[in-house]
């Protein structure tokens, strides 16, 4: 379990579905000075629960505190500090129609994606991959003058 200081970590938090629960979780991070790199939340199908995925960073000691403090929140069922996980992130990128579309399509397919929408002036590409590869994809996409990039934040599942 030895992690170097300020390592990136992904935490899954399973919570009761209630209106203020996300505020409780984010306020805890803000109030205690923990970082949030990305955060996603969605209901868990056929249940009264939601799954929050938080990418954060901190030393082992800080991570331990984050986990314990999250656990103390009344509507929190479970906190999983991921060790062995499959982690994915999605990104949507808008390109001008004038760019080389076949190059863009080829780039996207390298990163498990493709062009998902074509308009008069633009095309929209979608890619879902590991966060590190998403970063590479965005760097590569810069060449085609993207007009808008929207990242989705990570979701993770323990293996």
């Amino acid at each position: 379990m030895a992690h170097s200081t300020n390592e990136r970590r992904v935490i899954s938090v399973v919570v009761m579905n209630e209106s203020s629960v996300l505020a409780r979780v984010t306020a805890l991070f803000a109030g205690r000075g923990y970082n949030i790199e990305s955060l996603t939340v969605a209901p868990i199908p056929n249940s009264e629960m939601s799954h929050i995925t938080i990418a954060t960073n901190g030393s082992t000691k800080v991570m331990e505190q984050i986990t314990k403090q999250l656990h103390k929140l009344i509507p929190v069922y479970k906190v999983i500090e991921h060790e062995e996980m499959v982690e994915k992130e999605m990104v949507l990128v808008k390109f001008p129609i004038a760019e080389n579309l076949s190059d863009i399509a080829a780039l996207c397919s390298t990163y498990n994606g493709g062009i998902v929408n074509v308009g008069k002036e633009m095309v929209i590409a979608q890619v879902a991959d590991e966060p590190k590869r998403i970063k590479h994809f965005i760097e590569a996409a810069e060449r085609y003058n993207p007009t808008e990039i929207v990242r989705g934040g990570v979701v993770a599942i323990e293996r």
Partner: peptide, 16 residues
């Protein structure tokens, strides 16, 4: 009230 008291209560409820 629930927003203000969140960090200084063990738990709080807004009854709906």
């Amino acid at each position: 009230a629930v927003g203000i008291s969140r960090p200084c209560t063990k738990h709080n409820f807004l009854v709906r």
